[in-house]
Amino acid sequence: MDQGQSQATILQLHGVGMRYGSGEEVLRDIDLSINAGSFHYLVGPSGAGKTSLLRVMSLSVPISRGKLEIFGSDVRNLDRHDIVRVRRRIGVVSQECRLLDHLTVFDNVALPLRIGGADEERIAAHVSQMLAWLGLADLMEAKPNRLSTGQRQLVAIARAVVTRPDLLLADEPTSNVDPARVERLMYLFTELPKLGTAVVLASHSRELLRRWPYPVLWMEGGRLTQPTVWTSLAAE
């Protein structure tokens, strides 16, 4: 796959460190560039800082040092309105799915579109299409607490990609999904870059990396040990 070296850099981290509260740094000296239309795996042992790095990238937590540029802007210069605009360009799939159990599957997926002010006709079309494609058409009116873990994960993914974001950050999105649907999801994740979306996918699965070989960002002890590795684990 063309890694889009010629394409615009949408995310850059220079010497970024991050700590929760007054604790020790969980991310240290992170240097990283993500281009539009690129795909990266984020790999590392448990506690390496993968989730924290994704949270930094989604502007969910502030950095404690270094510089973070997203869509051409230094985050330090972003006001509240800018942050809202930036967040609307990012799709996030967290490990916990974070679905709203009092809303239906349809409404959960529609949420970012409604927040963005899309009209109901467009919402109905996009959401129905997305859910049908993921095989969840029959569960549109179901409440998430009645779904299996894998189904919940699919809903969370649908919600993250329904707005066709410029940057998709996914934390273990396939961990509880059945193999047939993993195929489908990986097809989706690898097709999105062709539409300009940059994808960063955190995963533990060597199988995934072997079957869909893409560049790997290797994390250990809060550091990116191979910041721009262009070989897949399959080549190891």
């Binding site: 809202v84 609307r88 927040i115």
Partner: peptide, 16 residues
């Protein structure tokens, strides 16, 4: 708090 945090993550401004 957590749901508010999620809505913000999805791009909801405070007025929303």
């Amino acid at each position: 708090n957590e749901t508010v945090d999620l809505l913000r993550l999805l791009g909801a401004p405070d007025r929303y």
